[in-house]
Nucleic acid binder design. Structure first.
Length: 279
DNA sequence: ATCCAGGATCTCC
DNA sequence: GGAGATCATGGA
C-alpha cells in the first residue's frame, strides 16, 4: 500500500486498496455519517474525517494513530485474497465489489452494543437507531456529531429509553447487557486475553448475544479471524452456492471454518458482500 | 398486505 | 437437545 502518514493525517494513494464507501457501507460498522463525498467515522468519542480526492484518499483526525490501527492499514488484503483463492479455486467471483474492503478494528464495547441492535434488523435501520442512541446518551464532538455513548453513559438509559429510540424487543437485551458489561468479569482488557473459544462462550452469556452476534463481535471488535458469522445472507449463499447438504447455522459456520481456517472471517466478508450486492 | 432484515430466546417435546 | 413460535419496526 502506498501510504503517507503525518501527525494528523494519512494519505492513501492507491484507491484500490482503500475504498471508504465500500468499507463503511458494507454492514460491519454503523456509526458514521456521509457529508457530500466525505465520511465522518465515529469510534466512541474519537472521530476521523475521510475525504475522497481525485487520485487519493485522506484521513484526518486528532487521533491519527488510533485510526491508523482502526482502518487496519498494515494488513495486506491482496495477500489474503490470493490465499482465499488458493484454498477455494472459484473464490474470485466473490470479489465483485470487494476491491477496497478492509476489516475495521472497532472498539469492542461499541461493537457489542451495535450488533445486539443489528439482530433481525436491516442495515439502514440499525444505523438510524444507533444514531438516535448516540444523540441521546453520547456527547457532542467537535465535528458536530455525537460520540457513541460509553458504557457508563449508557448505564443511565432505562429499558423504556431504548424502546423510545426504536430498539423494540431488543431493549431489554441492551439494558441487561450493559449491566453485565459493568461487572468485573466483562472487563474488556481481560476479555482480550481469552482465546477465541473461551471469549465466544463469554459473549454468548451476554443477554441478546447469540452465535451470529457473538461471531461479529469476535471478528469486527476483537479482531478474531477464525470465526464465520452466519446470517440470513450467508445461509442463502451456503444453500445456493456451496452445498445441497442441509445444515443449521452452527453447522454452516463450522463448514466454512473447516474450509477457510484462520481466514474465515475475511472469506465471510467477501461472500456476504457478494450476496447483498447481487441480492 | 405480507415478507424480510447482519437472530435470540422461550416453549414445547 | 432440536424444531417452531414469538419478538418490534419500517421499508419493499
Amino acid at each position: 500500500m502506498n501510504i503517507k502518514r503525518t501527525k494528523d493525517e494519512i494519505i492513501i494513494k492507491n484507491k484500490e486498496d482503500f475504498n471508504v464507501k465500500e468499507l463503511l457501507e458494507c454492514g460491519q460498522v454503523f456509526s458514521y455519517e456521509k457529508i457530500n463525498e466525505d465520511y465522518v467515522v465515529i469510534s466512541l468519542d474519537k472521530f476521523a474525517v475521510v475525504s475522497i480526492k481525485d487520485d487519493y484518499t485522506v484521513i484526518k483526525s486528532k487521533d491519527i494513530d488510533y485510526f491508523y490501527n482502526y482502518f487496519d492499514l498494515d494488513t495486506d488484503y491482496n495477500k489474503i485474497k490470493k490465499r482465499l483463492c488458493e484454498i477455494y479455486p472459484d473464490f474470485n467471483k466473490f470479489f465483485v465489489k470487494g476491491l477496497g474492503i478492509r476489516i475495521l478494528r472497532q472498539d469492542e464495547y461499541q461493537t457489542i452494543i451495535s450488533f445486539i441492535v443489528s439482530q433481525n434488523n436491516n442495515i439502514k435501520r440499525i444505523h438510524k437507531i444507533l444514531k438516535r442512541i448516540s444523540e441521546e446518551f453520547g456527547h457532542k464532538l467537535d465535528c458536530g456529531f455525537f460520540s457513541f455513548p460509553s458504557c457508563l453513559e449508557l448505564s443511565r438509559a432505562s429499558e423504556e429509553d431504548f424502546k423510545r429510540l426504536g430498539t423494540g424487543y431488543r431493549s431489554k437485551y441492551l439494558f441487561n447487557t450493559i449491566k453485565q458489561l459493568q461487572e468485573k468479569e466483562y472487563n474488556i482488557e481481560s476479555l482480550r486475553k481469552l482465546d477465541t473459544r473461551d471469549l465466544r462462550k463469554k459473549l454468548l452469556n451476554l443477554c441478546g448475544v447469540g452465535p451470529k452476534v457473538a461471531d461479529c463481535i469476535l471478528f469486527f471488535g476483537f479482531n478474531r479471524t477464525d470465526v464465520f458469522p452466519v446470517d440470513t445472507w450467508i445461509k442463502k449463499a451456503y444453500e445456493t452456492l456451496f452445498s445441497s447438504q442441509k445444515r443449521n447455522e452452527e453447522q454452516i459456520s463450522q463448514f466454512f471454518i473447516s474450509t477457510f481456517g484462520s481466514l474465515s472471517g475475511y472469506a465471510q466478508q467477501y461472500i456476504f458482500n457478494y450476496m447483498i450486492t447481487n441480492k
